[in-house]
Design a protein around this nucleic acid. Structure first.
Lengths: 167, 167
DNA sequence: TATTGTTATACTCTATAACTATA
DNA sequence: TATAGTTATAGAGTATAACAATA
């Protein structure tokens, strides 16, 4: 992202390749890590959203359902912090999942202000279906990479994603 | 602008395993590449947006400005396709940049339906300032990685981001 | 007839503040 | 006084369709 930007400098003057946008691949923007991460995520989440629509879910609600089904008994506050979402958005997401009988709110006995979210049996089944869909979509999005490269990418991303917490 | 207000409560709290959300790192979701990409991008673009606000820009408008200043003379249609944005959104973004004198529209002599967007001198100066900010924000976001690892991450992301075009 | 840019519109997502009940 | 959840609302972002000019 730094001095490496002009390592992949422009491929001479554009031959005005008519309608193709491939020529923009050589732009500086197309070599910025953040732009690439945004585009990669966009490619993946678009497909995931399309597939999840069959279960009336989106990546957002799937993420909540996944954490609720993790066995870690998250509170709404924890869901908000972990997903970088405002608590008020969690309310809406949990409302949706609760309305369809996938999750339940229950007061934390140790702090009755806190709602612990747990899955129902139907919620667990829904998650199993959704997880398979998301995994398939992810495999498709990463089909350009070998298994080893996928592991590599995931590990690098994890270190960036949690850099502030892990120091 | 104070979007992190709800997230600033953990400043002086000791690493107590009770209230922390670190326990959610072990969830399945935290090991999904797509989730990690979304979170990594969120970390980076939040900072970039905060810094770019000093220039009255956002990552969205910066991306347009960057492509316009690349010397590749993109049309609005090309900007839309490359940035995964609707053409109508490009209209608004180019309007903003044109209104502040950073870019100009000019009809493509070979197809007068098409608007070729070019930077003004002021636009080039604005881009130079913005690029430095974005680069600094990117370096900060990737500070957990070594230079070699950053290259590795960028190359892996590029292959994923352009997998459909490159085959 | 198809495409580029444009406008208008509706919908979703996100941010913010105020309120309650607990602590 | 502070925090978890809730509600309401405004703003930003996004998607869609219709239109004029051009091909």
């Amino acid at each position: 992202m730094t001095e490496t930007a002009h390592r992949t400098a422009r491929v001479s003057t554009p031959p005005a390749a008519e309608t193709g946008i491939e020529r923009l691949y050589s732009s500086e923007l197309a070599n910025e890590t953040e732009f690439l991460a945004a585009r990669a995520r966009s490619v993946g989440s678009r497909r995931a959203n399309e597939e999840l629509a069959a279960l009336d879910l989106k990546v957002r609600s799937y993420s909540v359902l996944s954490l609720v089904c993790s066995g870690l008994n998250p509170s709404q506050r924890e869901l908000a912090e972990f997903l970088f979402l405002d608590p008020s958005q969690i309310v809406a997401l949990v409302d949706q999942l609760e309305k369809r009988g996938a999750v339940k709110r229950k007061a934390d006995p140790r702090d009755r202000r806190s709602n612990i979210i747990t899955p129902t049996a139907a919620g667990k089944r829904l998650y199993a279906e959704a997880a398979a869909i998301v995994q398939a979509a992810g495999d498709h999005a990463l089909s350009a990479l070998s298994p080893a490269e996928r592991d590599q990418l995931r590990d690098l991303l994890r270190r960036v994603a949690f850099a502030d917490q892990q120091g």
